[in-house]
Simulated scan of single mutants.
Amino acid sequence: MSGAHPEIYETTPDGTPSGVVFDLGNVLIDWDPYAAIAAGVGPVEARRFLDAADFDFMAWNHGPDSGGSWGDAEDAVRRTHPHWVEHALAYRAHFADSLLGEVAGMGDVVRELHAGGVPLLGLTNWSAELYPHAPARFDFLALFDDVVVSGEVSAAKPDPRAYEIVAERSGLPLERLVFVDDRQANVDAAAGLGMDAIVFTDADTLRAELRRRGLPV
């Protein structure tokens, strides 16, 4: 951590949180794997792949998110689901197409928190190989004090170690951090560790939740 906001890194007497930890995909960045796969094999085949009863895309994607390589993940499909190889390869080959843009209003939330001196952390399930697409495209990520990328640390949410790493890097205890994620399982894991955890639905609802906690948005 840079220590750019030392006055807020300390526990605040009024109970206001000391920092905010954001998930990235579908909280700050609109992510849809369908768009990438459709760019490679067409919309009908992409939907057929993602809806397949014999292949769990999200479980497969979790491997690289947890520190595995995309080469190994794709080789596994060749061995176990050869009829889906072309579809699986399309995802990484066209990954940039899966990043549809900024989630509406969330760039403003990030900028306002930063302007108010609130430390900002990212905790994202994202492969180390594909994460560079994010900071190259979304300039608000430069406002973050740190982003913990699961594929880089080999710990993906809801693994408790992922949350512990973000606390270690922030220099703040977990209970002083607000955590925002769109997945209930990840929010539940954070709450179980003592974080103030919020399920993300939209920017306006989140803004109200953060204001209720005394944060400047």
Rank of each mutant, 00 (worst) to 15 (best):
A59S: 13
N61V: 00
A73E: 07
A59N: 15
A36W: 09
P82F: 12
A39P: 04
A35H: 12
D65K: 04
W60L: 02
E45D: 14
G68A: 01
R78G: 07
G63Q: 05
A38S: 14
V41P: 04
A53N: 10
L50C: 12
A52F: 06
A35D: 13
V41Q: 01
D54S: 15
R78H: 06
F49H: 08
I37M: 09
R48N: 12
D75Y: 09
H81V: 06
W70L: 02
P43S: 12
T80M: 10
L50N: 09
F55C: 14
P82V: 11
A39F: 10
P43I: 04
A39L: 11
D56L: 06
N61P: 00
H62Q: 01
R47N: 06
H62A: 02
P43F: 06
S66C: 07
F57S: 04
M58S: 15
A35L: 14
D54K: 09
W60M: 01
A76S: 08
H62V: 00
P64H: 01
G67I: 11
P43W: 01
Y34F: 14
G71R: 02
A73S: 12
D54N: 15
A46N: 04
D51I: 13
F55N: 02
S66D: 02
A76P: 06
A53S: 15
R78E: 08
E45T: 02
P82G: 08
A36C: 00
D51F: 10
G42I: 12
R78K: 07
P64N: 02
Y34T: 13
A39S: 13
G71W: 01
A52N: 04
D65F: 03
D56N: 15
A36E: 00
P64T: 07
W70T: 02
D65C: 04
A52E: 06
A59Q: 15
A59P: 07
A38K: 09
A38Q: 07
I37Q: 05
M58H: 15
E45Q: 15
S66E: 02
E45M: 00
N61S: 05
A46C: 03
A76Y: 02
G68P: 00
